[in-house]
Simulated assay, not measured.
Amino acid sequence: MTIAPDRLDGARGQAAWTDTRLLYALEEVVENELNRHLKVAKEWMPHEYVPWSDGRNFDGVLDGEPWAPDQSKVTSIGRTALVVNLLTEDNLPSYHHEIASLFGRDGAWGTWVHRWTAEEGRHGIVMRDYLLTSRAVDPVELERFRMAHMSAGFESDNAHSMLHSVAYVAFQELATRISHRNTGRHSGDPVCDQMLARIATDENLHMVFYRNLLGAAFELAPDRTMCAVRDVVTGFRMPGHGMPGFERAAVQMALGGIYNLRIHHDEVLQPVLRYLKVLERGGLGPEGLAAQDELGAYLEGLDGQARRFDERQAAILARRAARG
């Protein structure tokens, strides 16, 4: 990806690249990536992925039928993951506020922020409609979790700078895509699988946008970008980490093959890092080289942790199978 020479301003000095200058220098890239995104993104309608004919009234003011677990077509692990995924999408107002504050609401940056928000909004709409219409989850518990999660708000771990946010979403969008895709595959319901596959396609396009933007940032400010990637990778947490019962749900999702250390290392971190050639990049100063070394050492340690998780997972699943 090439940055226009006039935007480079003839400097690679790391101290010179403030957030404001980077936002200006990268705007042309944002515009190009936005235009590319709009050409490849396909319009889709949330209502087409919801089995409306399965719907009926719940108990309450309309005196319908109370929810019970045996009404759900979705597996137990599928229900857990669907609730986590939807609650994550529910915090969209907080995510919009954060990226709009960092990226701005004007020009190509602002156009992208609003387009991204609109596309993410569809995900929450279709997931909630599916869950309630198909009676996949307890609607009372879901609403109470939503109120608690949104009332607590969301503040990113990576709000140090604009570069930290770009680096975080480059990985997080891919992580979300994989979580949705694996949830669909483990859901036990073909309708759910089809819906989440559609959502995952959007998330992949979002990842490509941010990944390419991160690559352009490496051309402009390689040391600052390397440090941001190091910080994000070594401190990465999914945006839903503050929701009620997240730790227990995360363990169940890890054992169930929805999202775990092995998936995180092999299918999220490595693809983005390899594509951008992060560990092979030259032209770094002392700070960037130190961050690159730290990143390499961290990934090696994470691979070891993932290997130990694989062994524990296999042992736990074997014990479960033995118990029938």
Rank of each mutant, 00 (worst) to 15 (best):
Q313L: 12
A167L: 04
R135A: 01
P222S: 03
N35F: 05
Q313N: 12
R181I: 06
A297Y: 07
Q252Y: 05
G257V: 08
A306W: 02
R262W: 11
A297V: 10
A15W: 11
N260L: 05
E48D: 15
H206E: 04
L276D: 01
H206I: 04
P69A: 12
G283L: 07
R128H: 01
L34R: 03
L8D: 04
H37W: 11
A306P: 10
V74Y: 01
F103G: 00
N85G: 12
H97S: 15
H123F: 10
L26T: 04
W17R: 02
D63N: 14
P139R: 02
V30A: 10
P139C: 06
D202C: 06
H114I: 11
R198L: 00
Q194W: 11
V126E: 01
Q71I: 03
H149P: 02
E89I: 02
G60D: 05
L295F: 09
A306R: 07
D138M: 08
R248I: 13
A322T: 02
S151A: 15
R262L: 09
Y259Q: 05
H97E: 14
R248F: 11
H149T: 15
P286Y: 08
G324S: 05
R144A: 11
P93T: 00
S72N: 00
E155D: 11
E280W: 06
A4E: 15
T117H: 12
D310H: 08
M127P: 02
S72K: 05
R262C: 05
A221H: 04
R177M: 14
G104D: 01
Y49P: 04
L269Q: 12
S53N: 13
L82W: 08
M150H: 13
I99Q: 07
L38P: 08
R56T: 13
S72V: 03
L196P: 04
Y275M: 09
V113R: 00
L142M: 06
S101K: 11
D202A: 03
E65D: 12
L299G: 08
G153W: 00
F58I: 01
H241R: 15
M147T: 14
L284P: 07
G110C: 00
V140F: 10
A16T: 10
Q14I: 09
G104R: 06
R319G: 15
L255R: 14
L62G: 09
P222I: 04
H114R: 13
Y49S: 08
V251M: 07
F309G: 02
Y298D: 01
L289G: 13
D202W: 00
N91M: 13
F236A: 05
N182L: 06
Q313R: 14
A216Q: 10
N182Q: 12
Y49F: 15
A175F: 04
V232T: 10
V74F: 03
S101T: 13
C227L: 11
L163R: 09
G121N: 04
P5W: 01
A221G: 02
M243G: 03
D90V: 07
A290C: 07
A148W: 04
N57R: 14
G215R: 08
V166N: 00
I3A: 09
G55D: 13
E33A: 02
D193G: 09
S161F: 03
Q252K: 12
H37M: 08
R307Q: 14
L205S: 08
W52K: 01
A216Y: 03
G55M: 09
Q172F: 08
M195D: 06
L87C: 07
A315R: 14
H164E: 08
L92T: 05
N260S: 10
V251P: 02
V61T: 13
G324F: 01
V278D: 00
G242E: 10
A228G: 02
